[in-house]
Computed example of a mutant assay.
Amino acid sequence: MAAMSDVLLRVGRLNYVWTNTESLLIYIIAHLLRVEKEAAIVVFLTLNTTRARIDLIERLSKLASTSPSDRKAILSAMSRLKKESKTRNKYNHCIYSFDDKGEISSTQLMRLVEDDKEIRYGKIEQMDAREIDLLEKSIAEIVAISRTLWAFIHASPQIAGEL
Rank of each mutant, 00 (worst) to 15 (best):
Y27K: 10
Y27R: 01
I28M: 10
I28H: 09
I29Q: 00
A30Y: 04
A30F: 04
A30N: 04
R34D: 05
R34H: 14
E38M: 11
A40R: 01
A40K: 03
I41M: 15
I41C: 12
I41A: 11
I41W: 10
V42F: 13
V42E: 15
F44I: 04
F44S: 01
F44D: 01
T46W: 02
T46G: 11
T46H: 08
N48D: 05
R51E: 02
A52H: 13
I54H: 03
I54W: 02
I54Y: 07
D55N: 10
I57W: 07
E58S: 10
E58K: 05
E58H: 02
R59M: 06
L60H: 01
K62S: 15
K62F: 14
K62E: 15
A64C: 00
T66V: 12
T66F: 02
S67W: 11
D70M: 00
A73Y: 01
A77W: 02
M78E: 05
L81V: 05
K82V: 09
K82M: 14
S85L: 14
K86W: 08
T87Y: 04
T87W: 07
N89S: 07
N89Q: 06
K90F: 09
H93K: 08
H93N: 13
I95H: 09
Y96P: 05
Y96E: 14
F98Y: 14
F98Q: 00
D99Y: 10
D99V: 01
G102V: 11
E103K: 10
E103C: 06
I104G: 02
S105N: 11
S105C: 14
S105D: 13
S105F: 01
S106D: 01
M110S: 05
M110K: 10
M110I: 13
R111S: 11
V113S: 06
E114C: 08
D115T: 09
D115P: 03
K117T: 09
R120V: 12
G122E: 00
G122F: 01
K123W: 01
